[in-house]
Amino acid sequence: MPNYSNANIATADALTLLLHNQHAIAAAIEEVTKWLSKNGVGSVAENALAAMETLDGNAKNLSEAITRLRQI
């Protein structure tokens, strides 16, 4: 059976970078959401919170995929 460990490591490394980007985007959205809430744009802030929830859910799935790849 061929050894896919190098491919798995490369894939896990790439996914890790994407996950770090995703965390940075979530942090930026959180800051914008706070500003929107303080400046009376609550409906837009609610949409931003929904986007953050999506990012959080996807981050969890990415983390699990990275862990599985690193275990193979």
Score class of each variant (00 low, 15 high):
58 N>G: 07
67 T>G: 01
11 T>V: 11
65 A>I: 02
7 A>T: 11
36 L>A: 09
23 H>Y: 14
60 K>C: 01
35 W>N: 12
27 A>C: 01
13 D>R: 10
38 K>V: 03
46 E>M: 13
49 L>G: 15
32 V>I: 14
30 E>V: 02
51 A>R: 00
1 M>D: 09
53 E>P: 02
64 E>C: 01
59 A>W: 06
19 L>N: 00
37 S>N: 02
22 Q>L: 15
31 E>Q: 13
71 Q>M: 00
50 A>T: 12
57 G>R: 05
13 D>K: 10
35 W>D: 11
27 A>L: 05
71 Q>S: 06
69 L>I: 04
44 V>T: 07
55 L>Y: 09
43 S>D: 15
71 Q>P: 01
10 A>Y: 07
52 M>K: 14
5 S>F: 08
63 S>L: 11
34 K>L: 14
52 M>V: 12
53 E>S: 14
31 E>R: 10
31 E>T: 13
35 W>P: 00
57 G>A: 11
58 N>Q: 15
40 G>P: 08
36 L>Y: 09
34 K>Q: 09
22 Q>G: 04
25 I>Q: 03
59 A>I: 01
52 M>F: 10
12 A>H: 00
37 S>M: 05
35 W>M: 07
43 S>P: 02
67 T>R: 03
31 E>Y: 04
55 L>G: 00
6 N>S: 15
72 I>F: 05
49 L>A: 15
71 Q>C: 02
35 W>I: 08
63 S>P: 02
